[in-house]
Write a protein that binds this DNA or RNA. Sequence first.
DNA 1: CTGTTTGTGTTAAAAACTAACAAAAAAGAA
DNA 2: TTCTTTTTTGTTAGTTTTTAACACAAACAG
Lengths: 275, 275
Amino acid sequence: MLFYNKIFHVVSTKGKKMRERQQRLMKMLHSGGVLIRDVALELGVTEMTIRRDLRFLAQKHLAILTKGGAVLQPPIDVNKNINNDIVEKQLTIARALYERIMPSSAIYLSTGGTTLAFARVLVRLNNSPITVVTNSLAIANTLFRSCCKVILLGGELRSNSPDLVGPVAEKNIENYHVDWLISGCDAALSDQGYYTSDLNLSHLEEKSLHIAEHVAIITSSYKFGHKSLTRFAKIQDIELLVTDNALSAVDEDNLKASGTEVIRVVNESQKNNLV
Amino acid sequence: MLFYNKIFHVVSTKGKKMRERQQRLMKMLHSGGVLIRDVALELGVTEMTIRRDLRFLAQKHLAILTKGGAVLQPPIDVNKNINNDIVEKQLTIARALYERIMPSSAIYLSTGGTTLAFARVLVRLNNSPITVVTNSLAIANTLFRSCCKVILLGGELRSNSPDLVGPVAEKNIENYHVDWLISGCDAALSDQGYYTSDLNLSHLEEKSLHIAEHVAIITSSYKFGHKSLTRFAKIQDIELLVTDNALSAVDEDNLKASGTEVIRVVNESQKNNLV
DNA sequence: CTGTTTGTGTTAAAAACTAACAAAAAAGAA
DNA sequence: TTCTTTTTTGTTAGTTTTTAACACAAACAG
């Protein structure tokens, strides 16, 4: 062990000053990251000293060294890896929509699984400073620190789903105008329209139809053939539908007869794509 | 501080080869991290090319550049429970405030580390259906599915911190009235007031002072003794301050002289060890 | 006090990074 | 196709960051 310490020039027992400094460094790391030059100046020691401190912290897996500084080593979490088929399909659908409607300057992304997938696509593929208005906390979280400007409607947080509905949200939405409204649905009938199971959300969706130049729905095809609590859009309200290729020919004909452009995504997995 | 957020020159559309290579890089990142030299050799391209790929991935927040390589950028988890001294102290402070001001029927929780800790305390200790108004996404996420009713201000998502500021938020906040306003700060001078480093946030904080019956600030004591960009509150605006016991006697006297009630939390865990 | 251990500063050399431009490859248009 | 344009990769030179080695200083035990 002594040998190890010699090699890395790291000593085992630390003096008081050193420990205090390293704790301060940890604090700084927690607030986003540090630059060696700044910290050395701020703490009144040499850059070399800070380097040694950070090297020590990195060795303890508390920090990750970057060029000229360090960031916090996040605790390893094993949960993630959302690689199931549903998410894969949602991403494929979302990507098809992305290619159809981009570039746009402003869009409204309503809450939902497929719209969340669209947000993920945006993060990875989009470089332009598009504005995204949304009522979904999950989408806002996803788009945080992307190049998108994110506007979140205010209002009351629903208790069963992390999104905002209610009178405040409905009032706020009137302040915006977007190129594309992008929404999902809980159920759909190709000769009736699109349904959702939440009354408050339905109200908001209805209002949102009026703030957009164009309206698109992205959803998995299995949603077709059922009704749900309330209808928030008629078929002819929707300009574009993107779904997977399991959509029945009858449904597709119905939709096209009502003037909806239908994009059916080929399911064959573009699994190897980054998105 | 946020050196890894630098704006880099990044190309817009990607060719097939490039995308494939970046996918492979992502896979490699998933298995622990990459060294530029190794990868360049393995993929038969120049180090410069790998650098550009990694730079691109870093800009998409998929990777973090390190010295000579990169590691996976973990998805931001606003609910992360990091076990360290800072969070411990914040929770202790938050609990003290909780015991002082509860029960209340409605509070405003501003964005910040210690206020987030207060939200965690609420989730754990509170059983009553209190209403929480906030401009912080992290707090909203934390309180989601708790017994609290959560109201999120609308507005523009700040790019460096997951919270809402700007004119919409400022307008929305006027609709609410709460028993207690709870805020943190970036810096404080005991004879001047409380400071924050963000101008927009400062505006919002100032407005928020007027919607509350009582006003409290919770913050670590090391914030005292510095100034920051803008002052959002004078000392006498604040009715209650909760902080740790490292607050200097001079500061405490100043605060009390201006009519602020000061609660100093005893630091139970004096574990100075970093490991 | 003296010698040892531990922490910090200084330097020269090595490594990594960047920007700028040249070459190659790919994509479009005539 | 062929020519033109755009995108991607390679190369270089110059800058910044990191390292290793050693010298000095501070802390500490006997």
